[in-house]
Amino acid sequence: MKSVDLSSISEFSENILLIKLNQESPYSNNSSFFLALSAFLREESHWIEVVAAEESIAVKYNDIKISTSKAKDLILSTIKGFNYKEESKTEILLHVPVYYSDEFGLDIEKITKTQSVTYEELINLHSNIKYEVKMIGFNPGFAYLGDLHEKLRIPRLSKPRINLLPGSVGIAENRTGIYPFGGPGGWSIIGRTPMKLFDNNNKNPFVINPGMRVKFDPINKKEFESFNY
């Protein structure tokens, strides 16, 4: 593959390498390329962690056992066997029910004002898109979904909140996402899902994974309260 060679691998720390594309990307969608490549690399047992971001991958290795040049060679030889076809992805569509409301949507009223939209318009603009998983990270199971409708694009909060409720649905810039466990977060919150995005009984406990699309389905308060799974 032409787009990754030795010159596109750099050192992040003593035992972490960064992989980038060394030229204009031949793909229309870099993030899904990096997610797919990172999953492919993760199948090899050499690596302690393989983490994809939107435009790079971090690969952590045991530098007591593997030298840096050996690690680079292993990455390049693995990538040789990687065959990425943008079109041929089969995607699972996950429906996530969301109760859009002032009750849980801490910023929904403010957004309707700054973006000059009604509540109904906001809900339609947010729930009419089948979002792609662009990246996973920041905190456990948090999937960056995109792209958000242009009319809803707002900056991150200047001061992040410390303790969001689990299932809070947020937006920032061209991304939307759900906080599976709550906790700290700097995105504007427009609603909450009653769905559990995490199941400790599964080998991979996370419900949203790379390669999926996510569609939000608006529900009312009664449906939110009686939701059961």
């Binding site: 990172s38 302690i48 962690e49 393989v50 996973i136 456990p140 199971g141 991979n204």
Partner: peptide
């Protein structure tokens, strides 16, 4: 926990 940073852990 090792090996779960790709899921944000």
């Amino acid at each position: 926990r090792k090996g779960w940073r790709h899921m944000g852990v």
